[in-house]
Write a protein that binds this DNA or RNA. Structure first.
Lengths: 349, 349
DNA sequence: CTGAAAGCGCTTACAG
DNA sequence: CTGAAAGCGCTTACAG
């Protein structure tokens, strides 16, 4: 106790060795659980470690070429409903393996992203989990050919090959649009934010595919470039003579912006126009009407990517890069035009 | 280019020195921007650095006692609407100063939290930002008396003194409850999750204070222990003869659970019962009716805590620990009983 | 089963 | 303005 108040330097391996009356190597071996340490010696060492409050110096270990037991995770936005869930899952999975995670946000800016990747790789981290802001940015080629294992989440790299974990974007879009078609809607418009992303293009392609198959005329998708542009875009869309009777919003940003704007324009969702969104968010149940959406397994995405990366790091996974695609599901609520069935008061209303 | 394909070891400071025809110290000084390096020499060195793609080895630097340029951040849940915003702000502020951040979630479990803190402090990090799961857990005493600077966010430590950044919990609660009282409600119940937290106790105290001042009888607050217990708790509350006409929900979890459950119970918020919540969440605007809430400055909280910590680390801030309390504001929407004014269609409905 | 030597890649004094 | 020496705290061979 008295010892604690004096801010003496932290005990080193040598201090422990001296206190236990052994050589430094014996301490090192004991700590690292090597075989060939007499049990009695090991106990002495452990006692000394406890007595001195010894903790190995991470930097010194690193310098001798050990793994850092840390990974990096770079997402566009930590506060995003989807990426925050992914991040949480990554962190949890890493923790279970004794790994620490660096978390950084790119703000969808490849320059920031590259700078963070650079800091992390030279820190160094043992591996990186990445949601690329621009999957064609040339720095990714260098990164992918480097020695640090990379696993992309949600958005694969287009100009190089790495492990990736993503979801069925095209099939999810088809699920959504076909549900709308089954309801009998004919004028279905696709609305998307971040439409430059490959994932979103896939969803738009899925939409088109379903429209074509159903022999419905397929209007050009509406691309939302910013929150502020939504109102005028929707006013125009709903003012046109080809006013849609249903909407497929291709990501959570577009879904939320559209719902908000429909309210402002006094267009009643689920009545004046149906809506199904891609990416399900917890609070969609609280909206009136509750919104029908394609659910992406965000937690699985994060933990699966983290597990894959950890396997790569440990060299347990020698195969060439794998591309994992997780299934999505349609969560039916009411914005698509379906009715709640389990509530006796519902019809009375 | 050909060089890159051969996985030779990374260039070291000595390699650069040799390539530039100088001693290692000159390279070191050039990198660290020391004065007393002839501009011509420095240029040679920089050229060699570029040529060899040299990057300083972080571990080696650490070993000589440099700062790690990293901080740790531990929150209960990365996916929480409030903490994800705080985390994003912390990350952004750290990045602006060239700092990397370790992010970990405690899941409100002090054991996990202590283990993560331990890993981080020994890594080492230069400082830690913490939202303690249990502000009376004894490990915090050791932590606070250690050499790693600590700044708590949102929830101060009760058994030790550290820098802290939080919000006006009591005043926020009063703002909320007094607004309800002005509407003429008399039977206002306070509902809270995580009621063991000091912050929540403060909010409950604020509620009681306002009720007492208004000479209203003040029922015992309703403490929600888990999501699954909410329905029966609310059924009972609304079945009782002292059915409330208004609710003050003391945190976002309780607000969301209550809104959800009111829907299930077919109790119409804003009509059958008014509601004001503590902690404003982006999607509250999308709920029918939009929910009135106390807004906490989550971004400011995060960036202010990060800035304070960075100042401590750099030794720019010598004063004894400071406790910063940020103001909260009441964001009036409609769940409290107020009417939207700016919409011509509103009354017609 | 255990230890003395050398080295990982930097930086801090110390000398010029 | 510049460099040779020593050391940070570990671990990897190498010897016993």
């Amino acid at each position: 106790m008295a010892r604690k108040s004096s801010p003496t330097k932290r005990a080193t391996l040598e201090d422990v060795a001296r206190a236990a009356g052994v050589g430094p190597m014996t301490v090192s071996r004991t700590i690292n659980g090597h075989p060939y340490v007499a049990e009695e010696t090991a106990q002495n060492v452990r006692a000394a470690i406890r007595r001195l409050g010894y903790r190995p110096n991470h930097a010194a270990r690193m310098l001798t070429g050990q793994l850092s037991r840390s990974i990096g995770l770079i997402v566009p936005d930590i506060a995003d409903t989807f990426f925050s869930v992914v991040s949480h899952a990554v962190q949890e999975t890493a923790r279970e393996s004794g790994y620490l995670v660096w978390l950084a946000a790119s703000d969808e800016d490849p320059t920031i992203e590259a700078a963070q990747v650079e800091m992390m790789t030279h820190h160094p981290v043992d591996g990186i989990l990445l949601v690329p802001a621009d999957s064609r940015n040339s720095y990714l080629k260098t990164l992918a050919s480097g020695t640090t294992p990379i696993v992309t989440i949600d958005r694969p790299i287009e100009i190089a090959t790495t492990d990736s974990v993503g979801v069925e974007n095209r099939r999810g879009a088809r699920l959504a649009v076909e549900h709308l078609i089954q309801h009998g809607y004919q004028k279905i418009t696709c609305i998307a934010a971040n439409s430059h992303l490959l994932t979103i293009k896939e969803r738009i392609a899925g939409y088109k595919e379903s429209m074509r198959r159903a022999k419905l005329s397929c209007p050009k998708e509406l691309r939302l470039s910013s929150h502020s542009s939504v109102k005028s875009a929707l006013s125009e869309l709903f003012g046109s003579r080809n006013r849609p009777d249903a909407l497929f919003t291709a990501n959570n940003a577009s879904t939320i912006w559209v719902i908000e704007t429909l309210q402002e324009l006094n267009i009643e969702m689920g009545k004046d126009v149906a809506l199904v969104g891609f990416d399900d968010v917890a609070f969609y149940t609280l909206i009136t009407p509750p919104v029908t959406a394609i659910r992406q397994p965000a937690t699985e995405l994060g933990s699966m990517a983290a597990r894959l990366l950890l396997q790569r790091i440990k060299g347990e996974f020698k195969a060439s890069s794998v591309r994992t695609v997780l299934p999505v599901t349609l969560t039916i609520r009411e914005s698509c035009g379906c009715k709640k069935r389990d509530d006796p008061f519902f019809e009375a209303e």
